[in-house]
Design a protein around this nucleic acid. Structure first.
Lengths: 190, 190
DNA sequence: TTGAACATGTAAACGGTTACATGATTTA
DNA sequence: TAAATCATGTAACCGTTTACATGTTCAA
């Protein structure tokens, strides 16, 4: 089965409700979908161009204050394509996790190195979880319940919280396990 | 920062303990690391060639019964490179999850379609979790505790179980949430 | 005897990222 | 006035996947 470009759907989805500029799509995704979906700068602008050539979006130049923006609007054809994709079963992601690979090969190095990797990941996960709760309080909680997107955005955010919680618990267990087995140095808390 | 080929480390890691053929690496990874790391057929053979040209592995043709195999053995230089990578902090994976993207855009389609997506994922997650417990019982449990890799393989497997458990709970919660809110059709259990 | 598993590869296309490039406007 | 943010793009590279290609051996 031929692999197809999924970026287009993310972009069409971001345009579904209202017209946006490329920059707006980019920054919006950064603060909303980045945990499970990100687009690099260099993928959004060319894709918008392609979508316009295909008639899936239209563009017009606008001025917001003194700033020039190229605003893109989704067409009916674009909506049709987006909705057709939405109806398709979600393909399971192929996921590469370097930490788990290093853990899998842990016997080939010292336990201390693996513990170090796990501790670093623990720090990162705790930080990311904290950032997510900030989004929850500062952004999501401000949206009125009548907003049609709110429920779905909440569910996606809950997925993140649950993911980090489970990950953090597993990391703590794993670190303890290694330290008990190999007499981990408690001084090495960096 | 330039993105570098990580496949090489996975392959060097698989060769660290004992010589293997390309096919053996492939099938071995399929049953051990595939949840968090996979290599396609077309990446292993060329990479082995590259590694050999770099002096990281050596090869010789062997016969196992009547079957010809090209067995690859890691060199000291190869081990050095692998260990240097192991000591590097694990880079955080960029992860694309199509289900979460569709959920995020759920307000643009009918709740029923989103529920369908979540139900499908629930089935898949339950199936994958079951497969993992089979690996745990049939494969991991058979390995003697003295085997240096066992502890690490167990931790990686536990990560999978915890991941699926959390995911399954979240899916059930989310499905219930949507059904309560939108009066989900209970007949639609496919 | 037929299909599954073993076994090894190549070529081309594709998607995505990195690095490069530029410039305006707002805020500290 | 300097830095951060807004704003839009291109070119080249690289890693990965898909499709193609071939042949053997073992078990049902």
């Amino acid at each position: 089965m031929k692999k197809i470009n999924k970026s287009r759907y993310a972009i069409l989805g971001m345009l579904f409700d209202k017209p946006r500029s490329g920059y707006s799509i980019k920054s919006n995704m950064l603060e909303s979908t980045s945990r499970f979906w990100q687009e690099s700068d260099a993928s959004i602008y060319p894709m918008l161009k392609t979508l316009e050539a295909e008639g899936k979006v239209t563009s017009k130049n606008e001025f917001v204050g003194k700033r020039a923006k190229k605003m893109f609007e989704i067409t009916q054809t674009g909506k049709d394509e987006f909705l057709a994709w939405m109806a398709l079963p979600a393909e399971s992601e192929t996921h590469r996790d370097e930490l788990l690979l290093k853990l899998f090969f842990g016997a080939n190095t010292t336990p201390d190195e693996t513990i170090k990797q796990l501790r670093l990941k623990l720090q990162q996960s705790q930080k990311k979880r904290a950032q997510l709760t900030i989004v929850q309080i500062d952004t999501l909680a401000q949206i009125p319940d009548t907003h049609t997107h709110k429920l779905f955005w909440e569910m996606a955010l809950k997925n993140g919280l649950m993911h980090y919680d489970a990950q953090i618990n597993w990391l703590i267990d794993s670190i303890n396990c290694l330290e008990n087995k190999f007499g981990g140095k408690n001084g090495n808390k960096n």
